[in-house]
Amino acid sequence: MKSQNFRKSGKLFGALCGGLLSSLPAIPQALAQESTVKVNPSPSIFSEPPYNRSQAPGSPESGVTPPRPIPPAEGQVSPVPPRPIPPAEGQVSPVPPRPIPGDRTQQPSPPAVSNDQQPLVEPRQTPSATIALTNGMVNIRLVNNTAAKITFQVIGDTAPRSLEGKSDVTLQALKAPVTVTFERQDSGQLIVTPQASLEPGSLEVTFKEATNATQGRSAMRIERNGSVFLN
Protein backbone atom coordinates (compact mmCIF):
# COMPACT_ATOMS: atom_id res chain seq x y z
CA MET A 1 0.00 0.00 0.00
CA LYS A 2 2.84 2.36 0.88
CA SER A 3 4.66 1.50 -2.29
CA GLN A 4 1.66 2.54 -4.41
CA ASN A 5 1.38 5.90 -2.67
CA PHE A 6 5.06 6.53 -3.19
CA ARG A 7 4.72 5.82 -6.87
CA LYS A 8 1.83 8.20 -7.24
CA SER A 9 3.78 10.93 -5.37
CA GLY A 10 6.78 10.38 -7.61
CA LYS A 11 4.65 10.72 -10.77
CA LEU A 12 3.06 13.93 -9.47
CA PHE A 13 6.45 15.42 -8.60
CA GLY A 14 7.78 14.46 -11.98
CA ALA A 15 4.86 16.13 -13.74
CA LEU A 16 5.42 19.34 -11.77
CA CYS A 17 9.12 19.39 -12.54
CA GLY A 18 8.42 18.76 -16.22
CA GLY A 19 5.99 21.67 -16.41
CA LEU A 20 8.51 23.98 -14.79
CA LEU A 21 11.23 22.89 -17.16
CA SER A 22 8.98 23.39 -20.18
CA SER A 23 8.00 26.97 -19.08
CA LEU A 24 11.56 28.16 -18.43
CA PRO A 25 12.42 28.86 -22.14
CA ALA A 26 9.28 31.06 -22.49
CA ILE A 27 10.24 33.43 -19.64
CA PRO A 28 13.33 34.95 -21.33
CA GLN A 29 11.39 35.28 -24.57
CA ALA A 30 8.61 37.27 -22.81
CA LEU A 31 11.18 39.47 -21.12
CA ALA A 32 12.86 40.14 -24.44
CA GLN A 33 9.56 41.09 -26.10
CA GLU A 34 8.72 43.52 -23.26
CA SER A 35 12.11 45.21 -23.54
CA THR A 36 11.64 45.48 -27.30
CA VAL A 37 8.37 47.37 -26.83
CA LYS A 38 9.90 49.87 -24.39
CA VAL A 39 13.03 50.48 -26.47
CA ASN A 40 12.15 52.07 -29.81
CA PRO A 41 14.13 50.32 -32.54
CA SER A 42 13.35 53.09 -35.07
CA PRO A 43 14.00 56.69 -33.89
CA SER A 44 12.10 58.08 -36.90
CA ILE A 45 8.80 56.58 -35.78
CA PHE A 46 7.76 59.94 -34.26
CA SER A 47 8.07 61.69 -37.62
CA GLU A 48 6.21 59.03 -39.61
CA PRO A 49 2.41 58.90 -38.99
CA PRO A 50 0.61 57.16 -37.61
CA TYR A 51 2.27 56.83 -34.21
CA ASN A 52 1.14 56.56 -30.62
CA ARG A 53 0.52 60.04 -29.21
CA SER A 54 1.29 58.75 -25.75
CA GLN A 55 4.92 58.22 -26.94
CA ALA A 56 5.24 61.60 -28.76
CA PRO A 57 8.15 63.84 -27.64
CA GLY A 58 7.29 66.21 -24.87
CA SER A 59 4.26 64.25 -23.63
CA PRO A 60 4.08 63.20 -19.99
CA GLU A 61 3.97 59.53 -20.95
CA SER A 62 7.21 59.72 -22.93
CA GLY A 63 9.15 61.15 -19.99
CA VAL A 64 10.60 64.04 -22.08
CA THR A 65 10.16 67.52 -20.54
CA PRO A 66 9.66 70.46 -22.97
CA PRO A 67 12.21 73.33 -22.70
CA ARG A 68 11.34 76.16 -20.32
CA PRO A 69 11.79 79.87 -21.12
CA ILE A 70 15.10 81.28 -19.89
CA PRO A 71 14.51 83.93 -17.20
CA PRO A 72 16.36 87.28 -17.58
CA ALA A 73 19.78 87.50 -16.04
CA GLU A 74 20.28 89.27 -12.75
CA GLY A 75 20.13 93.03 -13.20
CA GLN A 76 18.14 92.87 -16.43
CA VAL A 77 14.49 93.83 -16.74
CA SER A 78 12.05 92.06 -19.00
CA PRO A 79 10.90 94.34 -21.85
CA VAL A 80 7.46 95.84 -21.25
CA PRO A 81 5.41 97.10 -24.23
CA PRO A 82 4.83 100.91 -24.11
CA ARG A 83 1.44 102.08 -22.95
CA PRO A 84 -0.45 104.89 -24.72
CA ILE A 85 -0.09 108.25 -22.98
CA PRO A 86 -3.51 109.56 -21.89
CA PRO A 87 -4.34 113.19 -22.75
CA ALA A 88 -3.58 115.78 -20.12
CA GLU A 89 -6.31 117.08 -17.87
CA GLY A 90 -8.51 119.56 -19.72
CA GLN A 91 -7.47 118.33 -23.15
CA VAL A 92 -9.62 116.33 -25.50
CA SER A 93 -8.25 113.68 -27.80
CA PRO A 94 -8.53 114.81 -31.43
CA VAL A 95 -11.18 112.99 -33.37
CA PRO A 96 -10.75 112.95 -37.15
CA PRO A 97 -13.81 114.16 -39.05
CA ARG A 98 -15.85 111.51 -40.72
CA PRO A 99 -16.26 111.89 -44.46
CA ILE A 100 -19.81 112.47 -45.63
CA PRO A 101 -20.79 110.09 -48.45
CA GLY A 102 -21.30 111.91 -51.70
CA ASP A 103 -19.90 115.17 -50.33
CA ARG A 104 -17.33 116.79 -52.61
CA THR A 105 -15.74 119.84 -51.13
CA GLN A 106 -14.82 122.42 -53.71
CA GLN A 107 -13.32 125.84 -53.37
CA PRO A 108 -15.94 128.47 -54.20
CA SER A 109 -15.06 130.38 -57.31
CA PRO A 110 -14.93 134.18 -56.95
CA PRO A 111 -17.98 135.97 -58.33
CA ALA A 112 -17.58 137.45 -61.76
CA VAL A 113 -17.26 141.21 -61.83
CA SER A 114 -18.61 143.04 -64.83
CA ASN A 115 -16.91 146.06 -66.33
CA ASP A 116 -19.52 148.47 -65.01
CA GLN A 117 -18.99 147.19 -61.44
CA GLN A 118 -15.19 147.51 -61.48
CA PRO A 119 -14.33 151.02 -60.32
CA LEU A 120 -11.58 152.85 -62.16
CA VAL A 121 -11.47 155.52 -59.47
CA GLU A 122 -10.57 154.62 -55.90
CA PRO A 123 -13.22 156.14 -53.60
CA ARG A 124 -12.02 158.62 -51.04
CA GLN A 125 -13.23 158.85 -47.48
CA THR A 126 -15.31 161.94 -48.18
CA PRO A 127 -17.24 162.26 -51.49
CA SER A 128 -16.82 165.45 -53.48
CA ALA A 129 -20.59 165.68 -53.96
CA THR A 130 -23.80 163.72 -53.40
CA ILE A 131 -26.88 163.61 -55.62
CA ALA A 132 -30.26 161.85 -55.53
CA LEU A 133 -30.50 159.34 -58.39
CA THR A 134 -33.73 158.76 -60.30
CA ASN A 135 -34.37 155.01 -60.66
CA GLY A 136 -30.60 154.50 -60.50
CA MET A 137 -30.05 156.86 -63.46
CA VAL A 138 -28.11 160.15 -63.62
CA ASN A 139 -27.73 163.05 -66.11
CA ILE A 140 -24.30 164.71 -66.27
CA ARG A 141 -23.71 168.23 -67.70
CA LEU A 142 -20.07 168.94 -68.54
CA VAL A 143 -19.09 172.65 -68.65
CA ASN A 144 -15.66 173.51 -70.13
CA ASN A 145 -14.61 176.96 -68.84
CA THR A 146 -11.08 176.62 -70.23
CA ALA A 147 -9.80 177.73 -73.65
CA ALA A 148 -8.41 174.25 -74.41
CA LYS A 149 -10.23 171.35 -75.94
CA ILE A 150 -11.15 168.52 -73.52
CA THR A 151 -11.46 164.83 -74.44
CA PHE A 152 -13.96 162.85 -72.30
CA GLN A 153 -15.34 159.27 -72.30
CA VAL A 154 -18.03 157.37 -70.38
CA ILE A 155 -16.37 154.00 -69.66
CA GLY A 156 -18.45 151.20 -71.12
CA ASP A 157 -21.04 153.56 -72.72
CA THR A 158 -19.42 155.98 -75.20
CA ALA A 159 -16.29 156.34 -77.27
CA PRO A 160 -13.86 159.21 -76.59
CA ARG A 161 -15.45 162.58 -77.48
CA SER A 162 -14.22 166.17 -77.68
CA LEU A 163 -15.59 169.20 -75.85
CA GLU A 164 -14.52 172.60 -77.24
CA GLY A 165 -13.36 175.35 -74.95
CA LYS A 166 -16.05 177.60 -73.48
CA SER A 167 -18.79 175.04 -74.28
CA ASP A 168 -20.88 172.42 -72.53
CA VAL A 169 -22.58 169.06 -73.22
CA THR A 170 -25.15 166.94 -71.34
CA LEU A 171 -24.89 163.14 -71.00
CA GLN A 172 -28.34 161.70 -70.28
CA ALA A 173 -29.67 158.52 -68.67
CA LEU A 174 -26.39 157.03 -67.45
CA LYS A 175 -26.86 154.03 -65.15
CA ALA A 176 -24.93 154.17 -61.88
CA PRO A 177 -22.30 153.22 -61.06
CA VAL A 178 -20.70 155.18 -63.88
CA THR A 179 -17.15 156.41 -64.52
CA VAL A 180 -16.18 159.39 -66.72
CA THR A 181 -12.60 160.20 -67.75
CA PHE A 182 -11.35 163.53 -69.13
CA GLU A 183 -8.10 165.24 -70.13
CA ARG A 184 -6.89 168.44 -71.82
CA GLN A 185 -5.52 167.97 -75.31
CA ASP A 186 -2.67 170.41 -74.52
CA SER A 187 -1.64 168.08 -71.61
CA GLY A 188 -2.56 170.72 -69.03
CA GLN A 189 -4.16 170.02 -65.67
CA LEU A 190 -7.87 170.39 -64.88
CA ILE A 191 -9.64 171.48 -61.74
CA VAL A 192 -12.92 169.50 -61.65
CA THR A 193 -15.86 170.72 -59.56
CA PRO A 194 -18.99 168.46 -59.36
CA GLN A 195 -22.20 169.96 -57.98
CA ALA A 196 -25.76 168.66 -57.75
CA SER A 197 -28.16 170.69 -59.88
CA LEU A 198 -31.69 171.72 -59.02
CA GLU A 199 -33.10 169.07 -61.35
CA PRO A 200 -33.41 165.67 -59.56
CA GLY A 201 -30.94 163.05 -60.75
CA SER A 202 -28.70 165.63 -62.48
CA LEU A 203 -25.06 166.57 -61.83
CA GLU A 204 -23.14 169.58 -63.20
CA VAL A 205 -19.37 169.25 -63.62
CA THR A 206 -17.25 172.37 -64.26
CA PHE A 207 -13.67 172.29 -65.70
CA LYS A 208 -11.10 175.01 -64.98
CA GLU A 209 -7.39 175.37 -65.68
CA ALA A 210 -5.09 174.23 -62.86
CA THR A 211 -1.78 175.93 -62.17
CA ASN A 212 -0.63 173.26 -59.73
CA ALA A 213 -0.20 169.67 -60.80
CA THR A 214 -1.47 168.39 -57.45
CA GLN A 215 -4.84 170.01 -58.19
CA GLY A 216 -5.32 168.12 -61.43
CA ARG A 217 -8.03 165.47 -61.78
CA SER A 218 -8.63 163.04 -64.66
CA ALA A 219 -11.58 160.82 -63.65
CA MET A 220 -14.94 160.94 -61.84
CA ARG A 221 -17.11 158.10 -60.52
CA ILE A 222 -20.72 158.14 -59.35
CA GLU A 223 -21.77 155.26 -57.05
CA ARG A 224 -25.23 153.70 -56.75
CA ASN A 225 -25.91 155.68 -53.59
CA GLY A 226 -25.27 159.01 -55.39
CA SER A 227 -21.79 159.64 -53.94
CA VAL A 228 -19.39 161.36 -56.36
CA PHE A 229 -15.61 160.77 -56.12
CA LEU A 230 -12.77 162.39 -58.08
CA ASN A 231 -9.36 161.05 -58.98
Rank of each mutant, 00 (worst) to 15 (best):
V37I: 11
L16P: 00
P97I: 04
E89V: 15
V192I: 13
S59R: 10
P57M: 07
T134M: 06
P111Q: 07
I85G: 05
E183F: 11
L31T: 04
L20A: 15
P81L: 05
T105D: 12
K175N: 09
N212M: 11
R184E: 10
K149C: 11
N139W: 03
T214F: 08
F46K: 12
F46Q: 06
G201K: 03
P99F: 08
M137E: 15
S227K: 08
P71Q: 03
D103H: 08
A219P: 09
L120E: 11
I222F: 00
A148K: 02
L190C: 11
N52A: 13
E204H: 01
S93N: 10
D186P: 13
T146L: 00
I150A: 01
T181L: 09
N115G: 14
V113G: 05
L120S: 14
R53S: 10
E164Y: 03
Q125K: 12
S114H: 10
P127R: 03
P72I: 01
P67S: 04
G102D: 02
E223S: 14
L31S: 08
S35L: 14
A132I: 14
V77W: 03
P123L: 03
N5W: 06
K8F: 02
E204G: 06
R221Y: 04
L171Y: 00
V92A: 15
N5K: 11
P110C: 00
N145E: 10
S54V: 02
V80R: 05
R124S: 15
P119Q: 02
A112S: 09
T105H: 11
R7Y: 04
M1F: 10
S202K: 05
S44I: 10
G226A: 04
F152I: 05
K11G: 09
V95A: 07
V92R: 14
T151N: 13
P43W: 06
G90Q: 04
G226F: 01
A26V: 11
R161G: 15
A73W: 00
D116Y: 03
F13L: 15
G201M: 02
M137A: 15
P96L: 13
S187C: 02
Y51H: 12
N40L: 11
R83A: 11
P87M: 11
A73S: 13
P194A: 09
T181K: 10
G10F: 06
P99Y: 12
P67D: 07
G18F: 04
P50S: 12
L203V: 02
P86G: 10
A219Q: 13
A73V: 04
G10C: 05
E199H: 00
Q125L: 06
A30C: 07
Q91D: 08
S35W: 05
P67C: 01
